[in-house]
Amino acid sequence: MTRVLELRNLTKDFEGRGRTVRALDGINLRLSRGEFVCVVGASGSGKSTLLSMIAGLMTATGGEITLDGEPVTGPGPDRGLVPQAGTLYPWRTVERNVAFGLELLPLDTAERAQRVDWYLAETGLSDLRKSLPRQLSGGQQQRVAIARALACEPDVLLLDEPLGALDVQTKEDMQVFIRQVWQDTGATVLMVTHDVEEAVFLGERVVVLASEPGRVIAEVPVELPDDRELGIKRVSAFLALRARIEDLIRAERRTAVDDATEQSA
């Protein structure tokens, strides 16, 4: 399999009030074309920082990010980003939101319209194409954000807790939706979430981050059938996998707390 995205020894420090805080420490990660990888970790594990750096919105302190072998130097349409909420252009209709990135590419009008139509249909938004973002529900808004990022046909789709602001029912519907879109489009997806269940349901592989500094403590392959429905969340193989990852995060947190008490003692 070809590697699309590769992170080598990626490190990020934040400077503030005369001290340096290490947010990410020596992250190594490889994504192959068409893969769906989820990154889980507690708050403070630097998961969003990680995505911002891959998106090119933030520079690394050390290490390297390459896309198809080329180092990442800034943001670009080859890496689509979907943040948690509220990133649609409120003055643009659904279809014009989806068209935003395409307007910046050298495409003729017919091809642009065709692509917009295809991604609207794929994300189930065709009937809402003339609506404004404020007329949509939270779940619909995230569909638009995903369609907009996908329309540029990026090498990798970066999802930054895209379902974090949704209610439980909408969230589950959207999980099914994201898997469906991934299977239909063959996109390469890197998704960050704090929800272990979500990560196991969606990912082919789950990368577990520890906090302060954020670092990879485990990579867990998800050996579940490709054809997943919500019911799979109650299957024992699923539950075992979920428990294993939650234990990893919990154990890591306990060590951190023990260290802290030792230091203060």
């Binding site: 670009g76 349409p77 252009y89 935003f100």
Partner: peptide, 27 residues
């Protein structure tokens, strides 16, 4: 104009000038 809106525009391939013209001004 929200930072996140500008950031997402850069990831969609907009240059500084395009962000100014297509995001900052209409917003």
């Amino acid at each position: 104009v929200p930072r996140s809106l500008l950031d997402v525009s850069y990831t969609l391939g907009a240059s500084r000038g395009e962000v100014l013209r297509k995001v900052v001004v209409p917003h």
